[in-house]
């Protein structure tokens, strides 16, 4: 079980803005094991977005080491980084970022289009599997405009799952959703973590979201100020049950 997916040592990232050097990340070290569910917390300016960009191989550290699944990403070219993102990572964004006027299934299979290994048939099968995992198999041919916010985010999660990544990175993934839908998404993420053993890194600034994760890293001014194992993990399913019953909002359907 002690399989290290992320190993970060003395990571620094600095930007020079108007001649002034800003240390977005200053000597950060931590590692993530397979099957963990981590929230990264911090106020804006704490460096959590920079950390997420580096974790997501979208940005490179100024110094320090980042091993993703045993691969040192500092040595890689842009194209190799793109390949790494394609095969090892899954992204879930706050604003879903689905392609407009494109069906759910086509959105989900998008990452596989950038991978030569999959045939058209395999692509479709994997996309269907991923949509089943997020319980949207009845909405496969719906366009994003025909789906509710929660459903769109589930399509986005399916897209993040489709390439069997070693880690799913979620950036404020519940930020655009109401609390009930947020809990539904959290429930889905918890299920993916518990039942399928997916490693999840969830960036947020909402403390109650952190309660659902197994571990919380808090950043401030580019440094880790807290790295705690959550002793009392809340179950999103339980929270949902306790919510006062509401009439399910009528979701758009064909």
């Amino acid at each position: 079980m002690n399989e290290s997916i992320v190993d970060i040592k003395n990571l620094k990232r600095q930007f020079s803005i108007g001649g002034e050097v800003v240390h977005a990340l200053n000597n950060v070290s931590f590692s993530i094991q397979k099957g963990e569910f981590i929230t990264i917390m911090g106020s804006s300016g704490s460096g959590k977005t920079t950390l997420l960009n580096i974790l997501g191989c979208l940005d490179k550290p100024s110094s320090g080491e980042y091993l993703l699944d045993g691969i040192n990403m500092s040595d890689l070219s842009k194209t190799a980084l793109a390949e790494l993102r394609n095969t090892k990572l899954g992204f879930v964004f706050q604003s879903y970022n689905l392609l407009a006027r494109t069906s759910a299934i086509e959105n989900v299979e998008l990452p596989l289009l950038y991978n030569n290994k999959f045939s058209t048939k395999e692509r479709k099968e994997k996309a269907i599997q991923a949509l089943e995992a997020v319980k949207l198999s009845d909405r496969m041919y719906h366009l994003p405009s025909q789906l509710s916010g929660g459903q769109q985010q589930r399509v986005a999660i399916a897209r993040a799952l489709v390439n069997d990544p070693v880690m799913i990175l979620a950036d404020e993934a519940t930020g655009n959703l109401d609390s009930r839908t947020s809990y539904e998404i959290m429930m889905l993420i918890q299920d993916l973590n518990n039942e399928q053993g997916k490693t999840i890194v969830f960036v947020t600034h909402e403390p109650d979201i952190a309660n659902f994760s197994k571990r919380t890293i808090t950043l401030k001014d580019g440094k880790i100020i807290k790295d705690l194992i959550n002793p009392t993990i809340q179950s999103a399913r339980e929270v949902l049950k306790k919510l006062p019953p509401v009439i399910e909002p009528v979701t758009a359907s064909t």
Partner: peptide, 14 residues
């Protein structure tokens, strides 16, 4: 859209 495609693994050449 380009940003998204890049984040899910499209290279500059793609």
């Amino acid at each position: 859209e380009i940003g998204l495609r890049m984040s899910i693994g499209a290279s500059g050449a793609d």
